[in-house]
Simulated scan of single mutants.
Amino acid sequence: MLISYNQSYEKIAMGLLSYIEDFKSVERLREAMDNYIQSEDRTLYLWKDGETENIVGIVGVEHSDVVVLVRHIAINPSFRQEGVVYQILDKLQTRFPDLAINGTLETVPLITKWAQKNNQLDNTVCE
């Protein structure tokens, strides 16, 4: 389940973001958190696992009238290889149905794999 960030999730959010190489320093991590909190066009979402009810992922997006730019995405290592990234991106698409989901240099490989997976499913359904 995709849930919006609020102050009560600060430590969890910072912990998940710290898995991203750019945020190994506390200063850079704090700066990124502040950017998401203070900016009207940036949002952090947390991913709650349906089975465990634990928060296991985070995604930071920047949104405009035409696009949702996935700036950061991190998953708890214990939940990687379980398709959590695809689930997060599916929910983002549901939340922003009229907007394109794009990525940065760091996140575009994940977005591309997700889009290809969805395209394969669409082709399978059409056949």
Results as ranks from 00 to 15, higher is better:
13 A>W: 01
17 L>G: 03
95 R>N: 09
41 D>C: 09
117 K>I: 07
70 V>T: 06
22 D>C: 07
99 L>P: 04
21 E>T: 11
29 L>R: 05
7 Q>S: 11
59 V>N: 00
127 E>V: 13
5 Y>F: 14
40 E>I: 06
89 L>G: 01
44 L>P: 00
105 L>G: 14
76 N>T: 09
63 H>D: 04
66 V>S: 10
70 V>W: 01
70 V>H: 02
88 I>Y: 03
106 E>Y: 03
10 E>V: 05
50 G>T: 06
64 S>R: 02
50 G>C: 05
65 D>T: 10
62 E>N: 06
12 I>E: 08
22 D>L: 13
101 I>P: 01
26 V>H: 10
97 P>Q: 06
74 A>I: 01
19 Y>R: 04
126 C>W: 13
123 N>I: 13
25 S>Y: 08
34 D>S: 09
52 T>D: 08
29 L>P: 04
97 P>F: 08
46 L>P: 01
39 S>F: 05
127 E>F: 12
99 L>E: 02
5 Y>W: 03
113 K>W: 05
126 C>M: 15
13 A>V: 04
50 G>K: 07
1 M>Y: 10
28 R>G: 05
27 E>M: 08
27 E>D: 13
84 V>S: 09
75 I>P: 09
87 Q>K: 15
81 Q>M: 14
1 M>F: 11
32 A>G: 01
11 K>N: 12
42 R>K: 15
78 S>V: 10
70 V>N: 06
56 V>F: 04
50 G>H: 07
76 N>R: 04
94 T>F: 11
108 V>T: 14
121 L>M: 04
80 R>C: 11
77 P>H: 10
102 N>M: 15
124 T>V: 14
75 I>T: 09
83 G>L: 09
96 F>A: 02
103 G>M: 09
